[in-house]
Design a binder for these strands. Structure first.
Lengths: 236, 236, 236, 236
DNA sequence: TATGAATGAGTTTTCATTCAT
DNA sequence: AATGAATGAAAACTCATTCAT
């Protein structure tokens, strides 16, 4: 399974800072001082986004200092403002690009690839989730969205439209497929695809808050959950 | 069902400010002009806690200004410091007392009251949750704990010990009861009581982030979830 | 030699707080609650002065909190204001009364008691100083006057008039007595009695600042100083 | 005699603020409008130190507001924090650098320059002191060290090590030289070089506290003191 | 008189944002 | 475009002083 890129650092249209022109890598090869100048603006922007991600997920929006972001990104503080209008813009942009690639995957569950079962698809998803999210930076991102979402309504809306809606639709498709194949007996499940991902969300939260105190065997839990969904796991 | 008090404003022992003496509620109801002094210290403290709750849940820890808390509580800024050592202490104290009464309820599921089924008990719980949490201040509190928990490890630990552990134990008891009665077929569910509450947690998050855009029929969803747990809802 | 009272707690005329009336001990014997009320106002005032002395000498004027003074004095914060107009007044009053008794002694050197030598008188003084000032609270007071004097010109003036001037006069008398007796050869010393006490002042400062690092044998030093004054201590 | 620089404004190694890079004085004299940026960081730092000196000596540590220091230095409040970690650091740094150059002089008394007498050396020192300290900012600094030293033990220790110890050693050397030459008869004076400088210290204190009321002829007093030390001034 | 809770002006410190270079 | 020193508004916290009881 191809490794997912952690973040998508391509500048989002319209969400970037003042200048939209000259976003092309500048690459002044003739420059006498080859240090910073040879790094393209795009790479620099990516570095800021990556650094911001680290800092924001670790400390939350308000407690993150742009000074730290700049230092981590290896740029001057002012440079951030060449790429992002302000702290808000950086944060939103960063969250926007953070989960994109993952969600694309979730939105398009590998239904019936090779005539497979819905359960198999769901298991693949759960496994991907456990491996690619739990215990990684992505879990921090999910947690951060939950944490800061209320304070950034446009962000929540963006997320709903661009990510959640697709994810829910994908889940629903998967459920309907399962129903059609007779794997899932309760047809009303299709109305609440959230039930499919709820344990995943809760896993992220649990590990974030209580992981030190009482680690959760996420994979095992997700398996039990699938047993419920797919009506198996009866006593003997 | 008796209405739960939204918050428990009794000062937690040891968590209050410098002086512990003479904090007795004076409550001189006969006073003609209810001056500041006639308001008992307890009420004043409660006002601060309530105001803090509003502000913290609305803006998060870092973005909340004690100035605003004071204004909302109708006290001077300095007064907060008579009751709480600092912003941190106010926050933690407030979160600590916020869910107490509710959790007591959740921790002791009404198992087999009147020889009832596990499903009935679970339904009562779900209904209580939908009514007493969703759409109320308590939802904000839960969201806030999720949001800020990572930055307040002691708080997370406190919550785990005082609330979560009990809640999980209660759920497990309920599950085992259901298994014993034959209502629940998958015995492995008892290992992950989190699965029982996951949809509730997700409801809170969903309504907080996307409630405006795509309100969720929490009650209905929880019913479907119970159908999964209790193995019903097959295509009739 | 009689032990000097550490401080003179008699209220200074005119320097006290609002009410000058009813300074007489109130002694309400009929009071049902005999605790605080049975303590005379004078004792209470004395307690405040004593507590203030401790705190001010330890932390300096600005860094001293009236809260601490009140706590140490065993009274409520408001009570301080019944006796002193404000922090300034307390400080000044306190410094005024602090050294009085000692200075009275210094101002009236025991010249020729029993036809004794000037040197004997001076030695007695030095010994008193080493014993009753160095290493005691009084040293702190001296240091405090030096430290805060510049910020309290009226206090400095008071001190000059009431204490220093007398002390200088006493020293001069002693010097002149010594000159008359032929014990002191340099008559110009009488113009600068400060030279007589300079080592004492320096001792206080030294012990306060460097006493931990390099303690000074004050008594020995003062003896050498007297040898200089009285022209002795030549080799062999 | 060359005029001593009042303060040493070179940043002390390790005591300065976060960034140590690019602190080189830029000093673009050709600039038409000497904007803030054209002022070298060193000059700016010096301005803060100078302003701090004024304020601290005038009001003492606690009563000095950084706002005033900033205003006097012509910088914004935040700028102080670019150079000094906090108020404490500014104060200590400032006191540390304040007397350096002077003390170097005192520590190395011009013993026997040109085969001169100890008395001549001591007289030169006294004269330097009267001229370069009494009535100048330096007197304020000395007074401030005496005043605040107790509250800044590290500062006191620094002063003892870097200044006092050297000064005392220098004095002792001078005394021993005087003893060797037969100018000083009391050999025990070498044990207490403090006696040599005590009148200087007292002069500083006296002028600071009582200078307005009863100015002291410091030069004359120091001369009498030297007569005592050098066993002269007998009634002719 | 005595109390001590309440007040709010005042101070330190932080940090997003700007802008001269 | 990039830098990073400078800015100053904003926020936490303190504490002298007041005043209802």
């Amino acid at each position: 399974m191809a490794k997912l890129p952690l973040i998508d650092t391509r500048p989002a249209k319209g969400a970037s800072a003042r200048k939209t022109t000259a976003r092309t890598p500048v690459n002044r090869a003739a420059s006498p001082r080859p240090s910073k100048r040879t790094i393209g603006a795009t790479e620099r922007r990516a570095a800021i986004v990556a650094a911001g991600l680290e800092e924001f997920t670790a400390k939350g929006f308000a407690a993150t200092r742009l000074d730290d972001v700049a230092r981590r990104a290896g740029v001057a503080k002012g440079t951030i403002y060449l790429h992002f209008k302000d702290k808000d813009a950086l944060f939103q942009e960063l969250v926007r690009t953070a989960l994109g690639p993952l969600i694309v995957r979730i939105s398009n569950p590998p239904i019936g690839v090779g005539g497979g079962s819905a359960r198999a698809a769901m298991e693949a998803l759960a496994e991907t989730f456990a491996r690619e999210v739990i215990g990684t930076r992505r879990a921090d991102i999910v947690r951060m969205i939950i944490a800061e979402g209320t304070r950034f309504p446009q962000l929540a809306e963006f997320y709903y439209r661009e990510v959640i809606a697709h994810g829910i639709a994908g889940m629903r498709k998967l459920i309907e497929y399962g129903i059609a194949r007779g794997e899932i007996r309760n047809p009303k499940l299709a109305e609440f695809p959230q039930l499919l991902v709820a344990p995943m969300i809760v896993s992220v939260i649990w590990q974030g808050l209580f992981g030190q105190l009482a680690p959760l065997d996420v994979t095992a839990m997700l398996r039990v959950h699938l047993d419920l969904i797919f009506n198996e796991g009866r006593a003997a």
